[in-house]
Design a binder for these strands. Structure first.
Lengths: 340, 340
DNA sequence: TGCGCTACCGTTAGCGCTAACAGAATGGCG
DNA sequence: CGCCATTCTGTTAGCGCTAACGGTAGCGCA
């Protein structure tokens, strides 16, 4: 095994000496340059293995002006979506030989974002992936005038910013179409905060699907993504009894609604059908299990990283990447109750 | 504003030229060396601001042999605890001028861990924070013989590894003591998988508290942290009817139990009291709201970073850092039903 | 005046790597 | 046999920064 108790880590030159070549040849082997004979390549690789040599990334970055690092700017990391997107990005990055540096933020003010971006660019990030689903994010980023590729998750690419998103509108339409198929005609929507990118898309999808079926879209209430807001809204809805089905913009709020309905004696799905959004792992174990729209965040993260590499390595143009969501039907939806 | 359309980013020398000093003096200003006169310091700072100079971290790392980067190795990032620990680490790191590079893994085999560790050390991480709550983690890490400080979250420090943990045993005792105070005498426990560090601590705490009260600790079932396993276990427990109270090792499994109990007609808390662990945001909105043990993961992450800095910058010895948990009483616990 | 000490600032070298060029060896072909 | 193209390898320079040392000016004190 690599024995270098004597000093510090081995360098290119140490490997070179051992393999009886120049350090430059070792560099060529490492970087897979073509013009190295098979014999010397093998000798060099053996020396690398014996010494346990690992390339010094700082030195490499200094000369190549690339850090092989992707900066990820994320808020709400404690939540299912962002966390899994990060996971996908990281896995794809590691496979491709990139490092992932993160800046986690709370809130999404322009100041907070620019601080975090500066932190990442200070490190020399080759590209930025932004997982901050607020509406103002795009503008805040555009103002910064960055000179590395930027991908905004959950946003459509505009100008120099690329986007990557699950098709929220489609997801919402799947949910609403399902309810319509079950015979519902009064279908409410509990949205996320207006001004959040994803939330707006879901509102639009809900509207469009209702419009096509000739149904009214007047039953809209705004929540704040939290289970608590779902609970409060659920209490109101239980008393109004306006809708026979509610499409809720995420699973956590749906959980809040379930509790409020339970307390008020409104049965799900007998009295009201409920559809969520996200399909986080717990949703299958709500009471009743929640019909919801699955988003494959990990896949989204991976494809994000692919798009990023294309831009960094081949200078490809940006664009917007779309992943399709999927409806998962469980016990919280049922045919519309026949009323007198 | 900084106008450098001409070429690439400004270097120390550009700043030096503008401020009519040597590049070394600029370096001194940046690094807060004492022997710089006030006048020149201000001149240099002005030049830095005008040019928008930012230090090149690669060059700095090359000579200092420090990357100012902390590697975070994390599994289960989609879960509440790890995600928030990461958040805390990152915030403390950024404040202290450190970068955080992450390696997210699935599973926790020695191979997987050593790959991820290699990835982080390849980047030259100055220290490692490991958020992988499996039992084998410690051994896998010890075998790697790293020459940077390592802090294992959820583990006690041993030898060259430091630890940082919420006091699981204490948390469990708080939960069980609460149930005992309510008059319960048959108190079951749904544990996490044996071999998970945190889970074992909770089992021990449960045992000890029962023992001190002279109660039996025979009602132990092993789950796998998921809501699904909680559901299946809940179905069994509902039929056995052995316990009047159950301490569940995390909130997600408790959610599964709630659903199973609901389906079987076992009322919570009238028939059985339930206590969870973690206090994730949703737990307040379970039906009924869940009594649980709160862990302040963000605080844990921050203190982790403090400990790390002490080791990196002052060569301090490692140690084990403990954060206290807190009991949060909600509606899922009630006095023991009086039976005939 | 001379000596030493302190405060300040500049010069030099080198961290480990890759790009660019220069040189040596080989092979094909007239 | 000579010439050029091709393949392989070595040499040199420099990425931007900090450590280490050297030099100068100013001051106090004998």
């Amino acid at each position: 095994m690599g024995n270098n108790n004597d000093r510090r880590l081995p360098r290119l030159e140490d490997v070179a000496a051992r393999a009886k070549v120049s350090h430059q040849t070792v560099s060529r082997v490492i970087n897979n340059h073509p013009n190295v004979s098979k014999a010397t390549r093998e000798r060099v690789e053996a020396a690398i293995a014996e010494l346990g040599y690992r390339r010094n990334t700082a030195a490499r970055s200094l000369v190549t002006r690339r850090t092989q690092t992707i900066g990820v700017l994320a808020s709400e990391l404690g939540q299912y979506g962002p966390a899994n997107t990060l996971l996908g990005v990281q896995q794809a990055a590691r496979e491709a030989g990139y490092f992932v540096s993160i800046a986690a933020i709370k809130g999404a003010g322009p100041e907070v974002i620019s601080d975090a971006v500066r932190h990442l660019t200070d490190q020399g990030a080759d590209g930025l992936i932004v997982i901050v689903p607020h509406d103002g994010t795009l503008q805040a980023l555009e103002r910064l005038n960055l000179d590395v590729p930027v991908i905004v998750v959950g946003g459509a690419g505009e100008g120099r910013l690329s986007g990557a998103m699950v098709d929220q509108k489609l997801g919402a339409r799947l949910a609403v179409a399902h309810l319509i198929r079950l015979g519902h005609q009064r279908i409410g929507h509990v949205s996320g905060p207006l001004g959040w990118i994803d939330g707006q898309g879901r509102v639009d999808g809900w509207r469009e699907e209702l419009a096509e079926a000739g149904l009214s879209d007047d039953l809209l209430v705004e929540g704040d993504w939290s289970a608590g807001s779902g609970y409060r809204i659920g209490q109101q809805l239980a008393e109004q009894q306006g809708a026979t089905a509610v499409f809720v913009s995420n699973d956590q709020m749906a959980l809040g609604l379930l509790r409020a309905f339970g307390e008020k004696g409104v049965r799900v799905p007998e009295d009201v059908s409920l559809v969520g959004f996200d399909d986080q792992p717990e949703s299958e174990y709500f009471m009743p299990p929640l019909t919801t729209v699955r988003q494959d965040f990990e896949e989204l993260g991976k494809r994000c990283m692919d798009l990023m590499r294309a831009q960094i390595e081949d200078g490809a143009a940006g664009g917007t990447l779309v992943v399709n969501p999927e409806l998962v039907v469980r016990a919280s939806t049922a045919p519309r109750p026949r009323l007198p």
